[in-house]
Amino acid sequence: MENPAVHALAAWPAPLPLAVAYSGGADSTALLHAAAARWPGQVHALHVHHGLQQAADRFESHCAATCAALGVPLHAARVDARHATGESPEDAARRARYATLAALALAQGLRHVALAQHADDQVETMLIALGRGAGLDGLAGMPRRMERHGVSFHRPLLELRADALREWLAAAGVAHVEDPSNSDLRYTRNRIRRLLLPALQAALPQYRDTFARSARNAARASVLLAGLAEQDLAEAGSPPALAVLRALPQERLANALRHWLRRDHGAVPSEAQLLQLQSQIAACSTRGHRIHLKIAAGRVEREGGVLRWYNASPLS
């Protein structure tokens, strides 16, 4: 039985040399074995020690032994991934992981990192987005490539099923670690994996393919909306002029505001915040009308004839 990751990598024009994010778990183990076999001497492994559980030391030792056997250099770093009050622990760990992987890669002169996320991960991501009431960006799921912290992250296994990777590991007798937190139903992703995906498999056996198609359609639509927002913002200027914004139809105004906040300030407004901002823009027909709204972690204010963004500080 051949590693299914080998077929996925054969169809991928990998940028070499390449780093592989390697946790020691099943998915990243299959990816690392396939990459090391396909591009010997051109693959590095990156391991993030999250420090969230006692087993993390054992995970790192396992990764070191596996990489030594494969002849792959291993670069590891420890990070404090504890979440702040009111913050999602999953989101905090993910942000810390990407920042650390990027730092490890750049320290070795590497600018491309392969991630082992697969078709089941994509479905879980889309279901989480649906549960949060996300827009098209969220429903587009995980892209095959993204830029973050000066590094390109790639997902060459997005078409593969999780069970196919695990079947190969078992058949080949390849050891991997099992993260105990993966069975903790306090985490949304784990509840989806344990409770919803089996039900989807029973009701809609082709759900991975259909969800992937929906993600691609959402991604295409998102690109079109971003292009329209760029046109509207080009006319509105930077910072955007209120007179131009007020002339836009409401849906285009919402699209332009959302794009401006995310593109220029890294802010993602809630639906309620965006609606309130639209309402205030529509009402500001007089010179004295004041706009002073909390948006995400900052605020938006009217300054003469334009909108301004300010980083977080107490509202007056």
Score class of each variant (00 low, 15 high):
Met1Trp: 04
Asn3Ala: 01
Asn3Tyr: 07
Val6Pro: 03
Ala11Trp: 05
Ala14Val: 08
Ala14Pro: 04
Pro15Thr: 13
Leu16Gly: 09
Val20Thr: 05
Val20Ser: 02
Tyr22Phe: 15
Tyr22Asn: 04
Asp27Pro: 07
Ser28Glu: 06
Thr29Glu: 04
Thr29Trp: 01
Ala37Val: 00
Arg38Glu: 07
Trp39Arg: 10
Pro40Met: 14
His44Arg: 12
Leu46Cys: 12
His49Tyr: 13
Gln54Trp: 07
Gln54Glu: 14
Ala56Arg: 10
Arg58Asn: 06
Arg58Ser: 08
Ala65Ile: 04
Pro73Ile: 09
Leu74Cys: 07
His75Phe: 12
His75Glu: 10
Arg78Lys: 12
Val79Tyr: 10
Asp80Pro: 06
Asp80Arg: 10
Asp80Cys: 09
Pro89Cys: 13
Asp91Val: 01
Ala92Ser: 14
Arg94Ala: 14
Ala96Trp: 14
Thr100Met: 12
Leu101Thr: 10
Leu104Asn: 08
Leu104Val: 01
Leu104Thr: 10
Gln108Glu: 13
Gln108Leu: 11
Gly109Asp: 11
Gly109Asn: 13
Ala114Pro: 05
Ala116Cys: 06
His118Arg: 07
Asp120Val: 07
Gln122Phe: 07
Gln122Gly: 10
Ala140Val: 03
Arg148Glu: 04
His149Cys: 06
Gly150Glu: 02
Val151Cys: 04
Pro156Tyr: 00
Leu157Cys: 01
Leu158Phe: 05
Glu159Arg: 07
Glu159Gly: 05
Glu159Trp: 03
Leu160Thr: 03
Ala162Val: 06
Arg166Ala: 00
Arg166Glu: 03
Glu167Arg: 08
Leu169Ser: 01
Ala172Gln: 01
Gly173Phe: 00
Val174Trp: 10
Asp184Ser: 12
Leu185Lys: 11
Arg186Glu: 14
Arg191Glu: 13
Arg193Tyr: 13
Arg193Ala: 14
Arg194Leu: 14
Leu195Glu: 15
Leu195Pro: 05
Leu195Met: 12
Leu196Trp: 15
Ala199Pro: 03
Leu200Met: 15
Gln201Val: 08
Ala202Ile: 03
Ala202Glu: 15
Gln206His: 15
Tyr207Glu: 07
Thr210Arg: 14
Ala212Ile: 08
Ser214Thr: 13
Ala215Asp: 12
Ser222Lys: 10
Leu225Asp: 02
Leu225Gly: 02
Ala229Asp: 14
Ala229Arg: 01
Asp232Lys: 09
Leu233His: 04
Ala236Pro: 11
Ser238Asp: 15
Pro239Gln: 03
Pro239Thr: 00
Pro240Glu: 13
Leu242Pro: 14
Ala243Phe: 12
Leu245Arg: 03
Ala247Asn: 11
Pro249Asp: 13
Pro249Gly: 14
Gln250Ala: 15
Glu251Ile: 00
Glu251Tyr: 11
Glu251Asn: 14
Leu253Gln: 05
Leu257Arg: 02
Leu257Tyr: 00
Arg262Thr: 08
Arg263Gly: 04
Arg263Ile: 00
Gly266Pro: 03
Gly266Lys: 09
Ser270Arg: 06
Ser270Ala: 13
Ala272Leu: 12
Gln273Glu: 15
Leu277Pro: 00
Gln278Cys: 07
Gln280Thr: 01
Ile281Ala: 09
Ala283Ser: 05
Ser285Tyr: 03
Arg287Tyr: 04
His289Trp: 05
His289Pro: 01
Arg290Trp: 03
Ile291Val: 02
Ile291Arg: 05
Ile291Trp: 04
Leu293Tyr: 02
Arg302Asn: 07
Gly305Met: 03
Val306Tyr: 07
Leu307Thr: 02
Trp309Ser: 05
Tyr310Cys: 06
Ser313Arg: 04
Ser313Asp: 09
Leu315Gln: 08
